[in-house]
Design a binder for these strands. Sequence first.
DNA 1: CACCGGATAAATGTCAACAATACCATCATA
DNA 2: TATGATGGTATTGTTGACATTTATCCGGTG
Lengths: 235, 235
Amino acid sequence: MAFHLACQMYEPVTISDRLFLDLRRAILTGELPAGKKISEPELSATYGVSRGSLREAISKLENCNLVTRKPNIGARVVTFSVDQLLEIYQIREAMEGMAARLAARNMSDHEIQHLRMLLERHKKAIDDPEITNKADLERDADLDFHFCIIQGCSNERLLRMLCQDLYDLVRFYRYRLNPGFSPTAMQEHELLVQALERRDGEMAELLMRHHVRASRDRAKERLQQMTPEELGLAG
Amino acid sequence: MAFHLACQMYEPVTISDRLFLDLRRAILTGELPAGKKISEPELSATYGVSRGSLREAISKLENCNLVTRKPNIGARVVTFSVDQLLEIYQIREAMEGMAARLAARNMSDHEIQHLRMLLERHKKAIDDPEITNKADLERDADLDFHFCIIQGCSNERLLRMLCQDLYDLVRFYRYRLNPGFSPTAMQEHELLVQALERRDGEMAELLMRHHVRASRDRAKERLQQMTPEELGLAG
DNA sequence: CACCGGATAAATGTCAACAATACCATCATA
DNA sequence: TATGATGGTATTGTTGACATTTATCCGGTG
């Protein structure tokens, strides 16, 4: 499994924890489609647990923004509009920019070497003719790259807000509308690693913000060419 | 009640909603002290509700980071270290900076006028000899000011992340360790409003980041002069 | 034919009891 | 005396049943 998916803070000890992880995976991978009603009787029967435990798991899903609940009506898997997606890019620009600035100061040399290694491996994999599923590779490599920097920022709460509150939404989107390979993005990653290697926090923040903004523009262009049916996740 | 405290997204329709709001207020105002154990039997008896509803309310409190839960052990009101507080300032610098940039573009003229009005009222109140509780005034005025800008950014998710996930923590801190009046902060607010009035997003972001960073420095200095007992909320 | 209203069915909210786990005081032993 | 085992007590996790609200269906009416 890709590194970025394993970035969970705790291991499941209780039933609702296990259930939460199962449902989370189901939602992220698309097994549960966007907008799908979360039926408590149905799911509690499927997983063989009581409604109480299920409701607790749903609460946790609500925390990472993967479902929305309305009183007396129920929970649904989250849906995306293009606008909401672009909103997330704006937030990422601000938060990951700060994360990059802090990472330049706080990452250990070893962590930076690891990041460099990720990047080089990614470069090789892109040129490898034996790897057919370039889209999945690109998605996982990019997510791993960003995770590595976020984890190096040494700001525990920033890390949690990004990983728990925001990145599940990014995955949710990526697993449905994978933007695919972009040579410019790879170049942006390269420059960013160089800035981190120089410990240049100011530049790292600028480059990260530029990179996220550029990704946003690429996604926007791509999304505007798609029909609502292709999107399949309008709210 | 101060404007910033009313910034709740929904009105309580269910028992656990009502309970959540009551407990939230109790925690923010200090009625429930930092680090206090949330005993399910005790609280369910106090409020006359079942443990199930209480647990649901606790989940909501966990969402806004006001309590932390450990499996099979229970929930406690959150505690603060100085480091964690400074972490929050870093996040605010990034997110509110972006919010200010967006607000310069998206706030209506009327909203900006309202912000100007808040500021002028604040200035007058500071000089008013009849108002004795300057510390509370300062806290509420500052929180209202920041809320007004955040609400003007037209990024729904950024708004929710700031108001729901972060600002309860800011209130939690402010209601315990109120930094008091700072003439520089007032001046920073003035410059910020001017930038918004000019619709200068670039400058608004820079000024907001500067303002948050300055507030962080002021808080840091203040906190370093306090003993752990005065802080009374070390984890 | 479209629209409204009441009865039925199903889903969510709430509760109290049971099971599993953690806390605590006591006691034995090195 | 300090340390570790042990049993009792209290707290949390889990479940199934009940109450309340919402959704659906169906017949009536303009």
